[in-house]
């Protein structure tokens, strides 16, 4: 369908943005989700406020001990950025899973997090990496942990008049291990089930601070707290993996969807957990 009638404003600075954000205004960043949904004519979009030319929302830097990724960073930029590859390699791994090149050239990290699709990769990565979202509003900003940002199906902690300005990722230390795996029907599809797994693997071979985060299996990214607890402090061996798999079931409450019943998603999560941890297991353990 053709898009319904809508208004369009471009903000060239944050000041202009605050002036433009009134009743019925929606933020337009990369537009790869918002504009696709307009074709369904499910809602009156009101006025779209284009933020893509606001310089403060751009840029990738390491400042204050964190990797700061501007909200307008496009997926393609994220995927080829050297700082990202060095300090948050999970994100570099995640980008090829996101849709297709033409979408990655437009879609932004801020847009992906704000839309909060439960099957999207970047929200899960943000949770897995324990990222902090910088939320700006007129006259100030606040920081919210990714874990607290996603509040339900397509809902977030964003208040009216607030936007995502940037995402801050802790710098990956030398002992960080990260992997993203998903089962999608076709390349670029939203995953039937996905896992962003981040943990520290000490020199003693023990796991600390595991953050297994599943996506496509709930109403947002699912941090598998019980599975994580089952792994904490253990050597990453078959028994630990089995323990995490056993604990995982209680972390999940997946809905049925067109691909299959909840039982399938639970099963796929167990498989992904096993494969992800197997891939992070030191070679000597794998041989054993």
């Amino acid at each position: 369908m053709k898009w319904p009638a809508l208004g369009y404003l471009r903000a060239s600075s944050l000041d202009e943005l605050w002036r433009a954000l009134g009743d019925g205004a929606q933020i337009l960043a990369g537009g790869q989700t918002l504009l696709a949904t307009l074709a369904f004519r499910l809602s009156e979009p009101g006025t779209l406020v284009d933020i893509t030319r606001i310089p403060e929302l751009r840029g990738i830097s390491v400042t204050g001990g964190v990797l700061r990724v501007g909200a307008l960073t496009r997926h393609a930029e994220l995927g080829r950025d050297a700082l990202v590859a060095r300090h948050a390699p999970l994100l570099t791994q995640a980008v090829p899973h996101i849709a297709h090149p033409a979408i990655r050239n437009r879609g932004t990290i801020g847009g992906s997090l704000a839309y909060a699709d439960p099957a999207a990769e970047l929200p899960a990565c943000a949770v897995a990496l324990d990222a902090t979202l910088v939320l700006a509003r007129e006259g100030g900003e606040r920081r919210v942990k990714a874990t607290d940002f996603f509040t339900g199906l397509l809902t977030t902690a964003l208040e009216p008049g607030e936007i995502i300005a940037a995402v801050e990722f802790p710098l990956a230390g030398p002992s960080q291990r990260a992997v993203i795996l998903e089962v999608a029907r076709r390349s670029g599809d939203y995953a039937m089930a996905g896992l962003a797994a981040v943990l520290d693997l000490g020199a003693d071979g023990r796991v600390t601070a595991p953050r297994l985060t599943f996506f496509g299996v709930g109403d947002g990214p699912v941090l598998a707290t019980r599975a994580n607890a089952a792994l904490e402090g253990r050597a990453l061996d078959a028994a630990a993996i089995a323990a995490a798999q056993a604990a995982l079931d209680a972390d999940l409450d997946p809905p049925a969807d067109l691909h299959g019943p909840p039982a399938m998603k639970r099963h796929l999560c167990r498989v992904l957990l096993g494969r992800a941890l197997q891939s992070l297991t030191p070679a000597t353990e794998q041989a054993a």
Binding site: V183, R185, H259, G260, P261, A263, M264, R266, H267, L268
Partner: peptide, 13 residues
């Protein structure tokens, strides 16, 4: 032949 049907046939779900 979807993953769900194949997994069901295998008794995995």
């Amino acid at each position: 032949f979807t993953p769900a049907r194949i997994l069901a046939a295998l008794g995995r779900i």
